[in-house]
Simulated assay, not measured.
Amino acid sequence: MWKTIGSFLHRLASPKYFFQISGKLVPWLAGLTVILLVSGLYLGLFVAPPDYQQGESYRIMFVHVPSAWMSLFVYVFMATLSAIHLIWNIKLAEVMVRGSAALGASFTFLALATGSLWGKPMWGAWWVWDARLTSELILLFLYLGYIALVSAIEEPRMAARAGAVLLLVGVVNIPIIHYSVEWWNTLHQGPTVTKFGKPSIHVTMLVPLLLMALAFQCYYFTVALLCARTELLERERRSAWVREMLAGSEAAVDLPRSG
């Protein structure tokens, strides 16, 4: 079993194999994204009942919460891939990191923006220097800092290493974001979905929330793989497998003409 997994991972590290398998995964992930997104939005906006305290305004959580979850997930994923790149020098890991940075920043910005829209009617202010909000804002700066850093360094290998170090150092902010509502007395709402022993959210609200979270995750992998494929073609444009693939594509286009 472990030998099979190791063999698969070894093949996945090959740019040619990664390009082939990602090309097959993208359409399925895109279709799954649409199905989950439509289902989650329908159940969240039209089936789930109003909250007994917040009324209809709570429905923004079906976008806010998945965005916040994804902002953390993407950063941890990027940091893990960066460690893999530093230790084993696997180029594809760094390619996936490059393709994920803008997505992670977008999720973080969306979480902050929707949180502000929810906070205005609930707290009476668009922004408060709450521990959760402040640490999430720092996460946005980490994403933007990574993008700026790797863009400022012309040498690709040095840029990848510098970006990886920044990501690994910034990981310390992730547990601060997650546990901030427990460590400090904050205005932000405490955990609800993860309280399985004493659930704080009704199943009619939990199901669409989880569907939206899965939709956001499928969307992330769809776009991240597309970005990685584009970056990979740019880097490997002079390699033999890219030339063979382009030659095959041109032959397939010319085939009907010759018939």
Rank of each mutant, 00 (worst) to 15 (best):
V63S: 12
F77M: 03
Y179A: 05
W129I: 15
L206W: 00
S71A: 03
I177A: 04
L103C: 01
N185L: 06
Y75A: 00
C218P: 10
V128N: 07
S258M: 14
A13T: 15
A125W: 03
L225E: 05
M70A: 10
L133N: 12
T80E: 15
V97E: 10
A164T: 07
G163R: 14
M70W: 04
A159K: 12
P66G: 08
S239I: 14
A131V: 04
M61Q: 11
L214V: 07
L226Q: 03
V193E: 09
S151K: 12
F196E: 00
P66S: 09
P208V: 06
V181R: 14
A102W: 13
M1S: 03
I177M: 02
M78T: 08
S200Y: 12
W241T: 00
A105P: 01
S200L: 13
K16P: 05
W69E: 13
K195H: 14
V203D: 01
F73V: 13
A228W: 11
V193H: 11
A148P: 07
S258V: 15
G163A: 09
F62E: 03
I21L: 04
H202P: 04
V253Y: 03
F109Y: 05
M78G: 12
W123I: 02
L92I: 12
L117F: 09
V34N: 01
